[in-house]
Design a protein around this nucleic acid. Structure first.
Lengths: 342, 342
DNA sequence: CCCCTCATCCGAAACGTTTCGGATTCATTC
DNA sequence: GAATGAATCCGAAACGTTTCGGATGAGGGG
């Protein structure tokens, strides 16, 4: 069906070799024949078969993304990241191939699956820090970029926002509004970001001269329901709380609903700050003050590091913590005056 | 790096041909040598190179998905569909390759891009009905499945939910709650689903013996802001309205906010029904009554039809309208008694 | 007139598979 | 004992590219 190099060669009256060299811009072909060959290729609607190219050149023509079956609540997270990955990959003439992180495979299996398909490298998202796959990845000599899980190696790196800074910003924001008694609803400990966000919370509290009480901290699991439980628990045990930093928007929405069900007004009685800036953060009432991470540039950066490793065997991948910003909306406000005066 | 057939052949002491046939389960190889060959393959950690396989067999090893840059508000829509596509593709030993529907290309370009990469077919989502690409697609002799745009051909079909039915269900639900004056905030006319949903709205009204007034219908563009404008406009012009059917959840949230800003209680003063059941529908207040489409099975069905065409040249693709269901939540309620009595 | 250089072209091998057609062996059948 | 047939195996071609190493011919310098 599709025209091949041989067809172009026949039509143009040259050898396959010359046609290939002409089309690839090599120097040892005269301008005149190059023109003829170009025309023939045009006429036949020729496009090189990437499969054949890949086989002979050994150069990969795509990168892989492992994602999309756990943490399904992070829909928007993934979508935007994919957009970033795709834009960056396309700019380097690479395609994007998707895989489900189903039952977690071993590092060897992942790498083999990629190699088999001619992929140059892969981005892996949605891993828990306790999966032993992670330890084996760096020494696989295959370009890998992890999402939100720290890893270091000559052919491996990771991308993440500066979660510590983000959490600190959240606390500082609340402190600047006069809050002193600030609780934390965290994600589960299987996620690396949970540790970071807790660290940031603690730093923020300490830097503001506030004590860190263990009873102010609740460990949820990123689900809306756990946010609800967290709010219920924290406010029952510590009625003096006037603000909550919640380590994900979804949990924050749960907390919001629970607080309102408990008759606590947000933000009059209690302020809430989330994390992520998922789209629904804007749609709940009150709209959620949150720490925004730009998943699009996140994706682009992941792809950039990956492609760096693929194209240059000597490339040493860097890790940069992406900035994240506070988006102030309706769920946070000044502490009630009586509280301040007290 | 990776072991090849030749390596296995050398280790096992047989020819490349025999090794290939042994590994592929052909009959003309004795059980004894098959076992030896298996062992050798195991020892070398051999996996067939799919690129080479693809080149020689001409069989595709992946399908394409065009999506993801327009209508970015449909995040969850796409994520779930991708999950469905991927599960179905994986079950048929196919991979999924992603493409951005950037500047809209011609049908020829799309097909060439796929052929060049050895894809067996493609799913295309996010097209407007007025793109002329659509008319050319059916005669391309390349398996294509469109999303939410009707198309028919020996190698082309489309998937969609039964939007007419969905809209009718929404109206019937509102009627069953006693509503008589029901407005419609529709999506833009570039989307096929908008026409269908309007059709369903009209059917539902007529079947309930209600008149269809042009002034009850507002054409938005699926954005939250347009939902807001729609609510503002419709209620200013028609103060007697007690219910709105809104053709997307995002617009419905806009409408919700606008209604509340106008001092109209939802659902006490006015009921709202959305469409899609995106995740945030559950998080807004009141939680949105909406028409749910199951995007996961949507994706699976799309893949199934596509793969049917790919694997069997004689396969005639079918179109089935997927069912959609009403999910009743807090944004719809019985019409106020004074209204009923009046 | 010969040798060298340069510009232009091409044959053939290679990438890692699958498969067609044939070759070999050995038992079976007439 | 030769022909038939089944059971095993293998060589070589093919898929569509790229590229190495050479081939050809023209022009220039000695």
């Amino acid at each position: 069906m599709a025209a091949t190099l041989k067809d172009v060669a026949r039509l143009a009256g040259f050898s396959v070799t010359t046609v290939s060299r002409a089309l690839n811009g090599h120097s040892d072909v005269s301008e005149e024949t190059r023109k003829k060959i170009m025309e023939a290729a045009q006429a036949l609607n020729y496009v090189p078969n990437r499969v054949a190219q890949q086989l002979v050149m050994g150069k990969s023509s795509a990168i892989g993304l492992y994602s999309l079956d756990r943490e399904t609540f992070q829909n928007q997270f993934i979508t935007l990241m994919i957009s970033g990955l795709m834009d960056e990959a396309t700019a380097h003439d690479l395609n994007l191939m998707l895989f489900a992180t189903q039952r977690l495979q071993t590092a060897e299996e992942v790498v083999m699956q990629c190699r088999q398909r001619g992929l140059g490298g892969a981005v892996i998202s949605g891993l828990r820090i306790d999966e032993d796959l992670i330890g084996h990845l760096p020494q696989m000599d295959f370009p890998i970029v992890l999402v939100d899980v720290p890893v270091h190696g000559p052919r491996a790196t990771y991308v993440s926002v500066d979660n510590v800074l983000g959490a600190r910003k959240a606390v500082e924001h609340l402190v600047s509004l006069g809050h002193r008694n600030i609780g934390l609803i965290n994600g589960h400990s299987g996620a690396w970001v949970s540790h970071q966000r807790r660290l940031g919370y603690e730093q923020g509290m300490r830097d503001s001269g506030l004590a860190i009480k263990e009873s102010y901290i609740f460990e949820g699991d990123f689900s809306k329901e756990s946010g609800r439980r967290g709010a219920q628990h924290l406010l029952t045990v510590n009625p003096e709380l006037t603000a909550l930093f919640v380590a994900s928007d979804l949990m924050a929405v749960g907390a919001l609903e629970q607080l309102q069900a408990m008759g606590r007004g947000v933000p009059e009685d209690i302020s809430v700050v989330g994390f992520d800036d998922q789209d629904f953060a804007l749609h709940v009432s009150p709209p959620l003050t949150t720490i925004r991470q730009d998943m699009y540039v996140f994706g682009r950066l992941a792809a950039r590091e990956l492609i760096g490793m693929i194209n240059d065997p000597g490339y040493t991948p860097r890790h940069v913590d992406l900035p994240c910003t506070l988006v102030q909306r309706g769920s946070s406000g000044p502490v009630r005056s009586k509280e301040v005066l007290r």
